[in-house]
């Protein structure tokens, strides 16, 4: 490890820890959110340093981007009547300094034990060689895509299911299923709207590109789906209300199609004597691409729906309050 690289890694490491602590002890929620988003972006730099571009893309887009948007969006409700984040340790603790010391020491000790365990970890060897050997039979050329959509496609399928479950769960939290048409039109802004007009088609194109790229290079359904969601969110911010104008039938199928099709494909070759999630080798490539296209659509739509529902949750309540 060369010196400048070591310096960069050290700096990133320090920054990560500082930002993480900052995100937890900042005095206002707004600062917490900002620190957390910066943390997510710094983390994607760390992924890049660790030769994990797929993860970097996913983290920057979902971990920092989407969740950051949701956090900032919820600030509207949380900071009503003061943005006091109340200190990390309760105000009523009599000896704040003492408890702070104890907690810091405890955290440090825990981290030390965990760090020791990592440092003493025997070399398991991993599955790199095995992945590489099986790559020609997987239908794709990029190892991460091969793992996600062929070797461990069962996990990936379940994970797309988690997104559907999370959408249902958010419906439960909001108290109704579906999206309400807002009573008044959105406040449109010429600058933001023209930006959205310019960016949205470009982003759709980028999503397609990432999807196609996933076959051989870093990229793939998740990253593409998130870019698609970003396009959706920008359009939503520009006041387009795409989701609200979709029919129930359309958004439900949109949310479910990735999961449903993946399942259908997983069982469709079983009458031919193949196993669950097993594809004929010659067709694996094209089939994976189709799965990825539909998964991208579903992921993009689901994440956009997260945001739209969130936005509606706050807005409808504040409207009720002012009435």
């Amino acid at each position: 490890m060369s010196l400048p690289a070591g310096l960069l890694d050290g700096l990133l490491a320090l920054l990560l820890v500082i930002l993480a602590v900052r995100a937890l002890i900042a005095p206002t929620l707004y600062q917490c959110a900002v620190a957390f988003i910066s943390f997510g972006l710094t983390l994607s730099l760390a992924w890049a340093r660790l030769a994990a571009p797929d993860v970097a893309l996913a983290e920057a887009a979902i971990g920092a981007g989407l969740l950051g948007v949701l956090l900032i969006n919820s600030l509207r409700d949380f900071s009503r009547g003061g943005d006091d984040a109340s200190a990390i340790f309760g105000k009523d603790l009599p000896t704040a300094l003492f408890s702070r010391t104890v907690i810091s020491c405890g955290t440090l000790a825990f981290a030390a034990v965990l760090g020791m365990a990592m440092f003493h970890m025997p070399e398991g060897g991993g599955l790199t060689a095995l992945t590489e050997a099986s790559l020609p039979h997987s239908g794709v050329e990029h190892p991460v895509t091969a793992v996600l959509l062929n070797y461990r496609s069962y996990d990936t399928w379940l994970e797309i299911g988690v997104l559907v479950v999370a959408m249902l769960a958010i419906f439960c939290a909001g108290g109704f299923e579906g999206f309400r048409r807002p009573e008044q039109g959105p406040d449109s802004d010429p600058v933001i709207e023209s930006l959205a007009r310019l960016l949205a088609p470009l982003m759709v194109m980028v999503a397609g590109y990432l999807l196609w790229l996933g076959k051989a290079y870093p990229g793939g359904a998740f990253q593409a789906g998130v870019v698609l969601a970003a396009a959706g969110i920008i359009l939503q911010l520009a006041g387009w209300q795409i989701i609200e104008n979709l029919s129930t039938w359309a958004w439900k199928w949109g949310l479910g199609i990735g999961f449903f099709f993946f399942l259908a494909l997983a069982v469709s070759f079983m009458p031919l004597g193949l196993g669950f999630f097993e594809y004929p080798e010659a067709w694996a490539g094209p089939l994976i691409l189709v799965v990825e296209v539909l998964a991208t659509l579903s992921i993009g739509l689901t994440l956009t729906c997260f945001f739209v529902y969130f936005n509606g949750m706050g807005a409808s309540e504040s409207r009720r309050r002012t009435r």
């Binding site: 070797y151 496609s153 069962y154 999630f277």
Partner: peptide, 8 residues
């Protein structure tokens, strides 16, 4: 699942 034996 998927015709791939563990550990893969």
């Amino acid at each position: 699942i998927g015709g791939w034996a563990p550990p893969l």
